[in-house]
Design a protein around this nucleic acid. Structure first.
Lengths: 350, 350
DNA sequence: CTGAAAGCGCTTACAG
DNA sequence: CTGAAAGCGCTTACAG
């Protein structure tokens, strides 16, 4: 920049103005400067200098618990990302993806992505309870919006009433007359465990979403006078299709069931596939209900709870932008809706 | 930082060392400084300052043609992202997504994501020919690796032999005896057009991948002594399922076909669905061949050309990291393979 | 083992 | 309409 200023015989400020404040310079002067800059191979202000000076980066960071590769695999995350990206694009903000594995060394003091990823604020997506990343970010007093995660600190938050929505799903099954119901959840604690879940583990779940949904299921059972403790809950231990299919298989092994209550659509779809491969018809032999209403759910005629995933991404991003601009923190609760399609029916229907 | 130095009664350098160069300080001194920093709410060096000083950001930028929302929708892009994310994670590098719409005002001189997104280098994914974003980046002398895109400038590049791979797909169909073949492509020029594609538009395609694949198809037809000019090519005009289904529908309308040559698996899968809804059996009544071998292709028993998408992301990211570190530019050509499954058979099979 | 000083590239309030 | 100067937060070569 100084070289350009020298070559043009003007001050450094003039160069800055030529690029960033056209109105501060006469048109011919500006043209001349731009021309000279071009000849010298100067393509405009370097963003790091500008950032240091203005304090504005122009990028938002998305913290995801699991590895990035997973984030691109999960349809629910993909839908959320779409919403985030929409708002980001409109506001000309870049999106930086920050993987925040729970046990990461990267979150320590000074090294690591979290501190190097230069962003104006963070979106913390579904981080498990007590995740150090959020703490680190708060310590730096960086703006953060929590999506779906636990929020003991009263941070800006966007999510849904997972408990109540899940309750309605279970109540739907119970109202149809199902009494032999099995439950599928993806991951309660990121500790690599999978298989049947004891009540203690249900309550100790560090994933707020799954914990709340389980609590909702339990509430529906209790309201119907049924012993929730006797219901089999199988944890997939992960989000991938393979884990989902294994969990569905394990659940169907446990005995004759008339219905599967799946904590996510991914699990519900896996349950349908597993049922199909065992010769069980849905819903004649087995009812299946999911959660999320992913794009694929309608095609599969899946009864599920709809939550506005894309909208969740949009609202969270807008809220973060607002908070960065100085707005008050807010808690945004999005609506959900039970969508009854063709995978649930009365038991013994077949 | 200065405040901490003052409070601790040491120089600013000591604070820097305490966080970034532990070996430069005695352990007790370091402890004391860290302690004081903590009390003062100083959480370690701010990354922008460090970046300005060291010139290293710790983030890579991925330029995608279309809107970010789309990027999260397309399975092929998702696979690529997975590979990129894997390498990025290992190298503790954050990934910044930079949407680069072709007609964007944002790419002009000084404003915009491209310049504000603070990154050490760029991955340019499938940008159409003559995209201004690449030019802008090169002007700034920022390291860039081109994935799948055109590469007149001899930049570091990662991709596959699209033409030869596509030729093998067409040759497979032709060898089976198909003579009534229709072709599906996603988008040749980002101009909103869809429908039948004239030869001129085929050659003028700005998307290198589709242009090469079409050239490969044409080569196979010519090698078999068949007039490529008479083959119907339908352009979806986009990548979404709706566009794909519409294109497949339009193709099947054009007359009795024995086979569909789809430029991507997404299109092939759409063709299969469309065929199914019209009562056509695959492969008895209609053969379908795709390209990519997406995760969903195996489940659908789709015959297709496999390309290592995840590996492509990995290699490109590693190459970019190497180039940033000063390595020589390189062109990496990944292998492809025709995977014959159950959607192709001899015509008249049914 | 520690400190003083320069400088990374920019923007902006202020003076002319 | 233009210019001189300060300072954003850091790191590092150098001197002590």
């Amino acid at each position: 920049m100084r070289d350009v200023a020298r070559a043009a015989g003007v001050s450094q400020a003039a160069i800055s103005y030529a690029f960033s404040r056209p109105e501060k310079l006469s048109a011919p002067q500006r043209e001349r400067i731009l021309q000279i800059a071009d000849e010298l191979g100067y393509a405009g202000p370097h963003s790091v200098g500008r950032t240091l000076r203005t304090g504005q980066v122009g990028a938002l960071g998305l913290m995801v618990t699991d590895s990035l590769p997973y984030a691109f695999d999960d349809p629910a995350t993909a839908a959320l990302l779409r919403g985030i990206a929409e708002v980001g694009e409109v506001s000309e903000t870049a999106l930086t993806l920050l993987p925040c594995p729970l046990e990461s060394e990267r979150l320590t003091r000074n090294s690591g992505v979290l501190l190097r990823g230069l962003v104006d604020g963070f979106l913390a997506y579904a981080l498990p309870e007590g995740h150090p990343a959020v703490e680190t970010v708060l310590r730096r007093r960086l703006p953060v919006v929590v999506i779906d995660g636990p929020n003991p600190g009263g941070l800006p938050w966007v999510g849904i009433e997972d408990r109540e929505a899940a309750r309605s799903a279970a109540a739907h099954l119970l109202a149809l007359g199902h009494r032999s119901v099995g439950v599928l959840v993806d991951r309660l604690v990121p500790d690599g465990c999978s298989g049947p879940v004891a009540p203690a583990r249900q309550r100790a779940a560090r994933d707020r979403v799954m914990r709340e949904r389980l609590a909702g299921y339990a509430a529906a059972f209790r309201a119907a006078g049924l012993p929730w403790e006797e219901v089999t809950v199988i944890e997939a231990g992960g989000f991938h299709e393979a884990a989902s299919l294994a969990a569905a298989g394990a659940l169907l092994e446990t005995g004759p069931l008339t219905a599967v209550l799946a904590g996510t659509d991914v699990l519900a779809l896996a349950a349908m596939r597993t049922a199909g491969s065992r010769g069980l018809r849905v819903p004649e032999d087995l009812s299946v209900i999911g959660f999320d209403d992913l794009p694929g759910a309608a095609g599969a005629q899946l009864t599920t709870v709809r939550q506005p995933l894309v909208e969740k991404g949009r609202r969270a991003t807008q809220l973060l932008l607002d908070v960065i601009a100085g707005a008050e923190p807010e808690e945004i609760l999005l609506p959900t809706e039970l969508v009854v399609r063709a995978t649930t029916a009365r038991p013994g229907h077949g």
